[in-house]
Design a protein around this nucleic acid. Structure first.
Length: 401
DNA sequence: AGGTATTCACATGAAACTATTCTCTGAGTTAGG
DNA sequence: TAACTCAGAGAATAGTTTCATGTGAATACCTGT
């Protein structure tokens, strides 16, 4: 017995023409053939790194700029070309790109060194060894032959604020001990103030050279979008003013190209799902809404139970009063824990959890003083009111309330 | 009235602890010669 | 005697707890007018 409604759906779905050619060029990992509006930066990075092709040590380089300004793409682009050039001339050059933010990859000193060692073919167990042992393994394998190594550490601020700047200090000094090889560092960060909190020695050696990526303006975003549209959408699918609006949206908050592309992709998907032949401006609004919602639902779903319980407390209290304080949440939270048989954490910890939820953009917290009545966090929800029931349901499922 | 001191209810920091996952080492055991 | 097994020591890490210290302004308390 086949459900005819569903069958119809699948049939018409298959018949429906896709608006996309390929979504590859809309993904943030895509590296275009030519990088637009970043000539200056490309030139500068290339200039700094070029000595490697003559077996001289390139200066360390520090790159910063907000998210979605093309730091990573541009860097990868230069690297790719360099590797190609080096290969052609048989120059011993190794370039590694590492994203320090990826959990369980390179976010601690141990894991960073382990990753590096494994790049050189020495697998290191994920735990169990002393850190200096791993360091030594890396050192030995690098120094085995004469070569220039360039290390690109993306989101280097994440590494430092988890593991401290000792790692960088060691890495910048490693050249003194290496006899055959030489290592240069490229640090990429989207936190402009990040270098200021660094050990001065690390700071000066890491930022021998600097490159800054300014946000794209609306016009630049438009031209980037146009190029990607050619590659990813079928001809004539994009309606009047769509690109302009996407660009304007993203230029408004710090010129984030990644967001602009995502917006465009989701708009396309929505149009396609609705059976439209063209992507229209209305779809963009819908897309923005849906991206935001998905983000929130996703983060909430993946939170640990304790966080969910805390958030549930906030939602419950929020229906009664607009502003909530830490103490109230903690009391409510303890009740919930009793109900669902969860070991309650200390208030100290809940305080941190609230701060974390704030960072996720699920709640807004502000530390205020109520004078005689103490100091506390003033908490309000930063999510759309209409989604609250849905979120509550998600939480109730997660906590089996 | 104006100025100072208190006080509250947490925030914020640092260190220590716990549980888990994993390696390495060396003692004890087993099996084959 | 070589190979194997297995428990125990030692690491890294995430998530907490414990302990200690910090803090901003509404109130309480003075003080001199």
């Amino acid at each position: 017995m086949v459900e005819s409604g569903l069958l119809n759906f699948f049939e018409s779905f298959a018949k429906k023409e896709s608006l996309f050619l390929s979504k590859k060029a809309l993904q943030s990992s895509y590296i275009p053939e030519t990088i637009h509006h970043r000539d200056e930066q490309v030139k500068k990075i290339a200039n700094v790194l070029a000595p490697a092709l003559r077996h001289d040590k390139p200066s360390n380089l520090f790159i910063y700029g907000k998210t979605g300004t093309g730091k990573t793409s541009t860097t990868k682009y230069v690297i790719k070309n360099m590797q190609y050039a080096a290969k052609g001339k048989n120059i011993p050059l190794e370039i590694f790109y590492l994203n320090c933010k990826l959990k369980r990859t390179a976010d601690t000193e141990y894991r960073l060194m382990a990753q590096l060692a494994s790049f050189f073919g020495k697998a290191v167990p994920p735990t169990g060894l002393p850190t200096d042992e791993v360091y030594k393994i890396f050192f030995d394998v690098v120094d085995k032959k004469r070569q220039t190594v360039i290390l690109v550490l993306d989101e280097i601020d994440q590494l430092v604020n988890k593991a401290g700047d000792g790692v960088l200090y060691n890495l910048t000094r490693i050249n003194d001990d290496l006899s055959n090889s030489q290592i240069s560092l490229i640090g990429i960060s989207n936190d402009l103030l990040f270098v200021d909190n660094l050990d001065p020695r690390v700071k000066s050696s890491l930022s021998e050279e600097e490159v800054v990526f300014a946000p794209y303006n609306a016009l630049q975003l438009q031209s980037i979008l146009k190029e990607r549209v050619e590659l990813s959408f079928k001809k004539g699918v994009i309606g009047e003013g769509v690109i302009e609006k996407c660009a304007a949206y993203s230029a408004r908050d710090h010129g984030d190209a990644r967001r602009a592309l995502e917006l465009l992709r989701v708009s396309g998907e929505i149009a396609e799902r609705n059976g439209n032949q063209k992507v229209k401006i209305e779809h963009i609004d819908e897309a923005e809404d849906s991206i935001e919602k998905d983000r929130v639902f996703e983060t909430i779903k993946t939170q640990p139970k304790q966080h969910q319980a805390a958030l549930y407390s906030i939602l419950s209290l929020q229906s009664k009063q607009n502003l909530i304080f830490t103490g109230e949440i903690y009391d409510f939270y303890k009740q919930i824990c009793g109900k669902i048989n969860l070991r309650p954490l200390t208030q100290r910890r809940i305080s941190d959890i609230l701060a974390e939820l704030d960072v996720f953009g699920i709640i807004n917290t502000k530390v205020i003083s109520k004078g005689r009545y103490g100091r506390t966090r003033e908490i309000s929800l930063s999510i759309n009111k209409s989604t609250i029931p849905h979120i509550k349901k998600i939480l109730e499922e997660g906590l089996d309330l």
